[in-house]
Design a protein around this nucleic acid. Sequence first.
DNA 1: GGGTAAACGGACGACCCCCTCCGTTTGGAC
DNA 2: GTCCAAACGGAGGGGGTCGTCCGTTTACCC
Lengths: 213, 213
Amino acid sequence: MPAQTSHKPPRDGLRADARENRDRILKAAREAFAAQGIDVPVAAIARRAGVGVATLYRRFPTRDALVTEAFAEELGHCVSVLDEGLADPDPWRGFCTVIERVCLMQALDRGFTQAFLTEFPGQADFARERARAEEGLALLVRRAKDAGGLRQDFEPSDITLLLLANCGVTTGADEEAATASRRLAAYLLHAFRADGAAPLPPPAQLGLDRIHE
Amino acid sequence: MPAQTSHKPPRDGLRADARENRDRILKAAREAFAAQGIDVPVAAIARRAGVGVATLYRRFPTRDALVTEAFAEELGHCVSVLDEGLADPDPWRGFCTVIERVCLMQALDRGFTQAFLTEFPGQADFARERARAEEGLALLVRRAKDAGGLRQDFEPSDITLLLLANCGVTTGADEEAATASRRLAAYLLHAFRADGAAPLPPPAQLGLDRIHE
DNA sequence: GGGTAAACGGACGACCCCCTCCGTTTGGAC
DNA sequence: GTCCAAACGGAGGGGGTCGTCCGTTTACCC
């Protein structure tokens, strides 16, 4: 019997049922996005969550808001993968690890890449995270180049190129997508190596904020 | 004054106005598919062609029929690129040329790849052309391997992998798409070379009939 | 237990796309 | 010029998604 009842103070101003529904919606959204891509109908998410459409819209007024929230966790995972790569004493190995892991994440969740590479007008959160990611990637690239593992004419935009390419090969079922993704990543990482590098055509102007479709 | 009037015998059983409209529709469809992808609304094509929707449907009962006709020419171009590649006395150069040209075609016409890599139920024409293409590509690969230019563990499915990857990087404006495509093709062709080849993960099970989305 | 504001969810109007029906127009043979 | 089958095009029914409105239910404070 605590003096101050701690069991039901609506910490974020939400009633208990509302909070639970919110969680259910986010879970359903993540599943639906992963399985069917980012274009899945809102009604399908609501049905999967076992709530009405209105409840979903009350919590997430726009589709973008839902997407942002749904992928916040995975975005964090991405950032930690990047940090791990930067912490690797072998810059080239760190570089490869980041690429391979992110590609696999893409392969297993087709919604995530779409979300990450798509511009969301007014979603400051995504823009900020993306900017952080770009900084980190630039550093990763610099380290790998300086260590001699990565070819000198590699551009940070080549990472976006790889992510987009990977996005293209990961449209099938999970296992198939993962296999294709692994093979593509292996080919490209081989091509990115400094030894045996041949001249390249000019890089594409691609940032992570690449608009999709 | 020819005994048999040759100016207006409806060769394909179409009236003159119908034939002209048919051509206009195909032209409009090609433009629309190239500019906006294969999912462009039928009504938009009809409007662009300056005909009513009914006229379009009368000529092309299903969407697939329209797509098939619209890309027949480009498909033929693809086949001739393949033939040229096969005719090249240097198998590796022939291989590279085919890849580079097809990638560029993809980059400049976003509808084409979607059409080519998508299954059209009941469109025997496409299936047949695709089968021919697969045979030709298999031969191209074999020659390039035997000549020592292409790595031994390369699989014909890797070409589909490349096409899908290229599809992923060619979603932007034409020029941007072409730049990205060229760079990706250069990286991958470098990775496909026999010299310096490192072990690869297993190939993906990808045919040209790869279902898309 | 009772009251109230928050939360709920189904129904609904707006929009878009697909494809067909049907009244009108027109090419071209005689 | 006359005629008719062929061709035309717009209107409209069916299906789907989006986002909102509003009458009903429910959590939580007292």
